[in-house]
Design a protein around this nucleic acid. Structure first.
Length: 130
RNA sequence: UCGCAAGGGUAUAGGCCUUUCCAAAUUAAAGCGCUUAGGAAAGUCCGGACUCCAUGAAAAAACGGUGCCGGGUAACGCCCGGCGGGGGCAACCCCAGGGAAAGCGCCACAGAGAAUAGACUGCCUUCGUCUACGAAGGUGAUGGUGAAACGGUGCGGUAAGAGCGCACCGCGCGGCCGGAAACGGUCGUGGCGAGGCAAGCCCCACCGGGAGCAACGCCAAAUAGGAACCUCGCGGCGCAAGCCAGGGCCUUUUCAGCCCGAGAUGGUUCGGGUUGGCGGCUAGAGGAGCAUCGGCGACGACGCUUCGAGAUGAAUAGCCAUCCUGAGGUUCAUUCCUCAGACAGAAUCCGGCUUACAGGCUUUCCGCGCAU
RNA sequence: GCCGAUGUAGCUUAGCUGGUAGAGCAACGCAUUCGUAAUGCGUGGGUGGUAGGUUCAAGUCCUAUCAUCGGCA
């Protein structure tokens, strides 16, 4: 119980002290650029990350689910889980000036345990930043 | 007929509203403000609304669709009622169900013969002849083939036979009766001359201009080569009026109407390729509930109440615990643990159809089994 | 979202008006060769995407459905 509450408890101060502005990635060209940069595969998703190097501290994140994931219901569900994941983790773990893309997987993204997916995202972020 | 089984907590989720900051817009912040996915949102199979394109009119052609009759509807290929046909013991279910004497075409194989009938095997009479058999004529019942054989069954009749005659059934035609009609009933008559296929061409009746919200309108950024308009000027004949040509006006033809015209310079504007934003954008042939009236019913009329998504890399959720149902394990114990809970996600909007679907609820009828 | 096209053998495909579904490559067998390839001869292989309907009879006609591919700002 205590372990699960840690991210929830830490989130409010991180927001108030250091306001990292997160924007959603919308243009196809940005997705293509991110795909050429670093990537880190995890059981529940795939993470791609790119440093823009344009001096702006803005953090941007995009979500992608292809038809491989399933029908429209499965794709929407996968995207929602990824969005919730990014919403919890990125404010504390993201680096300013980065673009991130989270890609959904066929079965795992919709059904995998949410707590372990949080750990995996933290791990993947470290891997990409190094 | 209901339909993630129930409600709750939590957001730096979407939209709308209000307030604050501001010259204004945008942005930002706030609000215990309101609201946020389906019966199929799906397939895109029909019918519309709406928008744009086309100068107008009417018909014809072409193309496409529908197809018993009547009604409902904004409209439909949908729905309701009736008729006819088929299936089922029954409740009930199913049917693209106009025309085959307008014409063309097709009917493989088998079979004598597959559509103006014809004569393989046969049967009968007469003649020739000892018989076998042959010739002439009559006949179309029998045999076998096939999906289908030119009305069927029975009796009479005959040399053998045949609607040749009769009865019943079927079919056609005509009258009468019932019905709004499809159609049904009945009487007479014809003697049967017209086999099937129209989801083959076709004929008849009716309907349809084309494209689609990525329509369409507006704003901003950005760049080789083209098009239109204004100005000068303009096909052949003719002094001229005018006549003769040619092209265009989004299927073709006809009629009416309008426009254009060789070439050149300058000016103005547009489109071609790339990309973003705004409007269209959600209140409508509205849905749901209740009551009254009309109708067999679909539905209509009127009154009251209530509900009401508008995103655009696309919100409507993720997570948490409780609880319900089911399965498995466990336990003295529905005690505890684990897993699962359908089909499926609005994208301009409505009316239908079709397809997918866990489980539940309600009502009526039929058959069978058991019990009384 | 809207509009269109195509499904036939392991692969690429033909088949108009309904009547026993063919071709090339591949596979297998035999011949040829010391052996292989090439070549020659022969053989097998088809729920016609799926389900209904019309018809005596459906790859073909009609309806529904599934899958794949393409176009439109």
């Amino acid at each position: 119980m205590a372990g699960r509450n840690v991210p929830v408890a830490e989130t409010p101060p991180a927001v108030s002290v250091c306001p990292i502005v997160i924007e959603t990635l919308k243009k196809r060209a940005d997705f293509l650029r991110a795909a050429k940069a670093k990537r880190a595969g995890q059981p529940g998703f795939m993470l791609q990350a790119r440093s823009r190097d344009d001096g702006d501290a803005l953090v941007r994140v995009g979500f992608t689910c292809s038809k491989k994931v399933g029908n429209a219901v499965a794709r929407n569900r996968a995207k929602r889980r990824l969005r919730a994941l990014a919403h919890i983790i990125l404010p504390q773990a993201a680096k300013p000036g980065f673009d991130y893309v989270l890609i959904g997987r066929a079965v795992e993204t919709g059904s995998r345990d949410f707590k372990s997916m949080q750990e995996e995202l933290r791990h993947a972020l470290k891997k990409v930043h190094s």
